[in-house]
Amino acid sequence: MLLQPRYIALDSAHLIQWADARVSAHAPRRAEARRFELWLERHGYVPLLSLHHIAEMANHAVEAVAAGRLRFLAGLPLVAWIGAPPQGGAGTVVTLIAEEVRAACTAPQASRSEVRDLAKPRLIQAGAGTRMLGAAPEAWLALRPVFAAEAEQARKVVAFTRVGTVDISKKPMAELLNSRLRRGEDLRRQLDLMTGTYAASIAQRADRRIADPDAMAAAFMGDVAAMASPLPETAAELVLRALATQGVTADDITPTSTIGDMLDLGLFRAQLRIAAEAAGVSPSEALLHVQPERIPSWSLVQALQRHLPDLPEREGGELNDTYLACLAAYADVTLVDKRTWEGVRRLRAKAPELAALLGRVERLPRFEQLAAVLGE
């Protein structure tokens, strides 16, 4: 048994390469997979996985290929995964944040790095691949429709939050609260204009797998209109009503608050409620003791979103890549794609205190190059 294992969080692409090499028709590829496995064992590295990895392994268009990749994971003799007790099954970034929230509530004075250190022993489970996936890994194939729906939702989230079509984040809240409400035909024209703007932006810059940008934009703006109905007397009433659904009140707004500040706070509090319930902590206790800057994974997701390069196409996979990068706070080595690596590089330069949470982060085209990159 490894007394002090070193955790290595592989990118999903590298896991897939490794799995495919294992069953390759070409002997040299199979040999590369075997050499990699011996290298991991010799240097005490244990692959660290999450449900995000499993979903991507299972999401291949050909079910037989997906089944083979799941069997590969189940066949690993030793693997670690994010999965808090008592269930201990493979978890997601929500699992990370839930355990960090639990730790922050248990130790209200703990710093961000101390919260990470308190959460880590409960978060990382280890054992054979069959303990993570079960004795019949093919059973996970039943979740393929769920994984596909989540991938589609990720494309939608990125399309509306990271393409930058309508950016009012730096606008002062006071200006929004004192603005004039549009009504009737004036409102309809504005909604139509915004729908067209979103549709054009999605078609030009969002994930190419989005089949109907017009329909997606129309559905989104329809939801916005429904949320605003019935229209109150003033813009302030409408804004405060929307913020209240995420746990933000007028008392949270300061003279210097921007729209982006309040949207971030609302998103945090909405996710805090989910994480608290998952951790068995009362939402009121979490709200009392937990500030956004004390939660490592939340801080990393928000910072990476700001620092990722603005590429011509913003793919849905960007969301998962950001979540997987959070493993860098718990792993000794984390492999990421080129875009995420650049985001981490910028993060290290712009936010060194947050970056200090991270282990080594590397990018490489092929899994078999890892030994050379690490110099071991």
Rank of each mutant, 00 (worst) to 15 (best):
I97N: 00
I97R: 04
A98F: 04
A98N: 07
E100D: 10
E100S: 11
V101R: 02
V101N: 06
V101K: 05
R102L: 08
R102T: 12
A103L: 02
A104R: 15
A104Y: 01
A104W: 06
C105R: 00
C105T: 04
C105P: 01
C105M: 04
C105A: 03
C105K: 03
T106L: 15
T106A: 15
T106G: 07
T106Q: 15
T106M: 14
A107T: 11
A107Q: 13
A107E: 12
A107I: 14
P108A: 03
P108V: 01
P108S: 02
Q109D: 13
Q109W: 13
A110Q: 10
S111Y: 09
S111Q: 07
S111E: 08
R112L: 00
R112W: 00
R112Y: 05
R112K: 07
S113A: 09
S113V: 09
S113E: 09
E114S: 10
E114L: 11
E114W: 11
E114M: 12
E114P: 11
V115Q: 00
D117L: 10
D117E: 12
D117G: 06
A119S: 03
A119N: 00
A119D: 02
A119V: 00
K120H: 10
P121K: 00
P121W: 02
R122V: 08
R122Q: 11
R122N: 12
L123E: 12
L123Q: 11
L123F: 10
L123M: 10
I124C: 06
I124Q: 05
I124Y: 08
I124P: 02
I124V: 13
A126M: 14
A126N: 06
A126L: 07
A126Y: 05
G127R: 05
G127A: 05
A128G: 14
A128D: 11
G129R: 00
T130R: 15
T130S: 15
T130W: 14
R131I: 08
R131Q: 10
R131G: 08
M132L: 13
M132W: 04
M132A: 05
M132D: 00
L133F: 03
L133M: 07
L133C: 06
L133G: 01
G134R: 14
A135I: 14
A135M: 07
P137G: 09
P137K: 05
